[in-house]
Structures are given as C-alpha cells and as structure tokens.
Design a protein around this nucleic acid. Structure first.
Length: 493
RNA sequence: CGGGGUGUAGCGCAGUUGGUAGCGCACCUGGUUUGGGACCAGGUGGUCGCCCGUUCGAGUCGGGUCACCCCGACCA
C-alpha cells in the first residue's frame, strides 16, 4: 500500500494507523503500479456510482443529455485553440504507434517501428476540442441551439506529482459541453451548472462550499471566466471541488462552429464546459472522516443502516433473524438501504469496527437481552453515540435519524469552515497565519503580479472572488493600492 | 528535474562484529468463544528490488542500476 494517503489524514498525528485502516480495510482504493493511477475498489466505487446517479439526474433536469466522444484526439485538434493547447500540452499522453511485435529473442514485445501513426493521437485530457469539432456538424441554425451534452468518462493528465483521489493521472469525471446562441445564455448556463454543483456538494455530500469566480491566472485554459466551488478540508486547506467555464466564442471560432441567426446572419456559437471528478471522493473523505474511519453522509452511503445480531447459539440467532426480518422490510419500504449482517464468521466487535471504518451512518444491534426487553441499540456514526430505543417502530425512527445525521455532518463541517474564514488586511499577519490553514478574505489590487507574489511568498493562491461575501472597498493587502475585489486566499491541494 | 528517504512473506516491520531468515497482523486446520477489532494449539507462505564485485561464506561490506514514497517546481 502506497503511503500517498498522508494528505487525507494529516490532521491526525496518528495518521499512519488511520490511513491503513481506512484504505486497506474500507476498500476504498489502492495504488496500482501504473504511475499515479488508481484502483477504485467496489465499496469506493459504489459511492462514486451514487454520486453519478444523483448528478446525472440533476443535469437532465436542466435539459442536458448524455453522449460519448472518442478517447483519442488527433494532436492537431488540440492546437486549434491557442490558450487551450498552452494549458494542456505539458501533460498529455501521446499515442504514436498502433502495433507491437515480438522482439528478436522472442521473450517479449517491442513497438513495431513500421506502425508509426501519421498523426499522433493524444489521450484526452479534456474533450473540448473533439466535441467542438463534432459540434461543427451539428450546429447550423439558431434552432439547433442550445446544444446541451454531457459525457461520463475517464481522462488522463500526466501530472508531475500525483495525489490519490485529488490528482491521479487517470481519473473519472463528467464533462458537460454546451453551445448557445448568445453570450448571456452561455454565461447563465455556466453559473447554473455551478449552482447544481454547489447544491450537490452541500445537500448530498454535506460539504459546504464557497462559490466564486477565478482570477485570470487561475482560469481554465481557453476560458473567459471560470466559476468554482471551493471546499475547506479538515486541515484548513482549500480543495477546488468543481468548475464551470464560460468559454466565450473561443472554441466556436477555433472549430468554425457558426450558425445563422434569426436575421440570417452567421454567428459563432458561445460555449460552456463544466466538470466534477473522482476528486469529489477525496473531498468527501477529507471533510468528514475521523480517526475511526469514513463518515459518509446518508445520501451517499451505499449502505445506510447495518443490523448486527448478538447470539450465543443457533436458537438465539433464529429468534433475532425472525425479529429483524420485518424491520428490514420496513426500512426497504422507506427507501433505506439496509444490510443485515448475521454472518457467523466474524465476531460482533469486529463488525462494529469494520462498519464504522466504512462509514455506515446507522448501526442497529439486537441480542437476546433486547428481545426480552423489546429494545434495540442504535448507534449513529457521526457522533458515535449509542442509545437504547424501543424496538417497536424503530424503522421510522431510523429514517428520521438518517435525516438528522445528514444535517448534522453538514452543520459540523460548516461550523468548522466558518470558524476558519478570516478577514485580513495586513500582509505580515497574513503570512504568519496562512500557514495554519483557513480561508482569508483580503482586498486585492487585481494584478497578476500581486497574485504571483503572494503565491511565491506564502504558497497560498487566490481561490476565487466569492459571490456570497460583501465586496467592501479597500486597499490591497500587499501593495496598498486601491482594491478591485475582495478575494478568498488559501493554501490548497 | 532538484533535495531527502525506503526497498526483507499478502500487509507492517526487525535482522547485532558478514555464518545459510525472523516478529506482528492476515491466511489455513482443530477446539473453546461471541453486547466493542477473541483465545489456545498446530500449520502454509520469502532466489532479502536487480546486476557486478570483495570473501571460504553477503540481507549485512563496496560499486552500479531500477522502482516507489515525501518535500519542491507543475496542476483539477
């Protein structure tokens, strides 16, 4: 097991124990021998699938349809948009040949030099180019617009340094690409999708986020504006958790996507793109987990309730089985995913610890003692509190409890985050404090030079110009010049 | 690509002045257990990252090489 999960656990001194437990036993992921790629084990993938399903429904509610485009992109496509190629060229994997052959000693294979591709193909780092090349053929009239497509796929970016979940060279994501007849409509779509992401983060992942717009230097390659949701991890560092880009007419022009408007005049289409990735898994883990392992929000937990029987012999087990059956049925009726774990190859104590590690929100324990008293022990994962409740009507109480846990972990994360957002007007103070994490609201003169200096001297970056905080006038923290905006600055992953 | 570190059983590690490989967990068998990661007994599993050298003898010493990890640069 790679030791790369340190970042997930740095908030705890005892982190080596913690990540071993979490990753090995919780079956989240393990490092494959391909550099910086990840294996997502079934339990972790179940969480991702649930995220996918919820997001996909939300996209469709806004009129987006799913499609699929090729993995391999002709190299020339990438260079059509100047800034885009600048941004991605350094991290592209390139396919140069299409065939191998056995080597001379017949104990291995080599690349067949005769099978060199005329034009190299790149493995998509993102699909703007190939999608807009396709859009050219799909868009002729204003009646073809807006065109709203999304694809779920993998992409590859050959980063110099990888971090499990946060920056793997191959990752899973969704990328939405839309084309519009007007600037206003495209801008509104970019903002709309950011709101979808924020809603998902806060109401499903229980991760509070700051919505805002990126500075010019932090923008997506080829975008006019990049909107972002920024989450705060338990160590106070920021994690960019989703982005939505207003691309202007850059791709419309680069790929000659023109349509005839109502006045019969040709116009270039306006574009957006937006995406979230398996990085959200990292956000989920780093926001809620504690030293006992994962803490999953009920909305995303593959198993929401686990029931564990305590018994000394088959007869007792049978009695518990009989008592539990209607509860399981009722929970399912209420739309709650439940697992009754009466496997007899693990002891109860082991099961307790194991399901805590996996972040199952609610645990019910039922033994002979409870059968006599008509009770059941209920444990909630978020606070680890145990309570003995009447057995009668327990399923409906669990439903309420799940809702309460969802709320509680969001509130806990939000309280933590809000307590670590500071207003700061003094650069010396900022330099001192930013090391310890947290979000800093500071006035900025709007120049890339100041931004670069802050990054150079503190390793902190401007995360965004936040929408929700008041834009008071002021002077730049560093230069003392008049400020153009109040920005959120933090160290980030 | 710079700075640091690590390679010994599936995982985590120990291995003394060079003498033919060990511990914990996991796994298998049997028994006793079961309300917070059980216990006892027995057992399976390793060309010590790779190459070359020194030596009667190398996990250990020397040289080389590869891989991985951490901190930077880069980035979602």
């Amino acid at each position: 097991m790679a030791k790369e999960l340190d970042f997930l656990t740095k908030r705890s001194e005892d982190y080596s124990r913690w990540y071993n437990e979490l990753v090995v036993k919780a079956d989240l992921a393990e490092q494959a021998d391909v550099r910086g790629c990840m294996v997502i084990k079934p339990y972790g993938y179940a969480i991702w699938e649930k995220m996918q399903r919820i997001l996909d429904d939300k996209f469709k509610e806004t009129g987006v349809q799913n499609a699929y485009f090729p993995l391999l992109i002709p190299k020339s496509f990438l260079s059509r948009e100047a800034e885009h190629v600048e941004g991605f060229a350094k991290e592209c994997a390139v396919v140069t040949h299409y065939r191998l052959k056995t080597n001379e000693t017949h104990d291995g294979v080599v690349v067949d030099p005769a099978a060199r591709l005329e034009e190299e193909l790149i493995i998509r780092p993102t699909s703007e180019t190939i999608i807009w090349n396709t859009f050219k053929n799909w868009i002729h009239s204003y009646r073809d617009l807006p065109l709203l497509v999304n694809q779920w796929c993998n992409v590859m970016r050959w980063e110099m340094r990888t971090r499990l979940f946060l920056r793997t060279s191959e990752f899973l994501w969704q990328e939405g690409h839309t084309a519009h007849a007007t600037r206003e409509e495209a801008e509104e779509r970019a903002k709309m999708m950011l709101r979808v992401y924020a809603d998902f983060a806060e109401n499903y992942m229980a991760v509070p986020v700051v919505q805002g717009v990126k500075s010019e230097t932090e923008r997506f390659a080829g975008a006019l504006d990049t909107y972002t949701i920024e989450a705060m991890m338990q160590d106070g560092k920021a994690l960019q958790s989703g982005t939505s880009h207003f691309l202007g007419q850059n791709f419309g022009k680069a790929f000659e996507v023109q349509f005839l408007n109502k006045e019969n005049q040709p116009e270039y289409a306006w574009a957006t793109s937006w995406g979230v990735s398996t990085r959200l898994m990292g956000a989920l883990i780093m926001t809620h987990s504690d030293d006992n392992g994962l803490v999953l929000p009920p909305a995303l937990a593959p198993t929401q309730v686990v029931i564990i029987p305590i018994y000394k012999n088959d007869e007792q087990l049978q009695k518990v089985n009989d008592a539990v059956a209607p509860v399981v049925a009722r929970l399912k009726e209420l739309g709650i995913s439940v697992k009754y774990d009466n496997a007899d190859n693990k002891r109860p104590g082991f099961k307790f610890a194991d399901y805590e590690l996996k972040g199952v929100p609610v645990r019910l324990v039922l033994g002979a003692r409870d059968l006599e008293n008509g009770t059941v022990e209920v444990m909630r994962r978020d606070t680890l509190e145990k309570e003995t409740l009447p057995f009668e009507g327990i399923a409906d109480r669990v439903k309420d409890l799940l809702a309460d846990i969802q709320q509680n972990i969001f509130q806990k994360a939000k309280t933590f985050r809000d307590a670590h957002i500071y207003e700061c007007e003094d650069y010396e103070e900022f330099k001192c404090r930013v090391k310890d994490g947290g979000f800093f609201l500071c006035h900025w003169d709007g120049t890339p030079e100041t931004e670069a200096r802050i990054k150079e001297e503190t390793q902190a970056t401007i995360r965004c110009v936040p929408f929700a905080f008041e834009q008071t006038p002021g002077t730049d923290m560093v230069t003392g010049k008049p400020a153009v905006a109040r920005v959120l600055i933090a160290r980030s992953y």
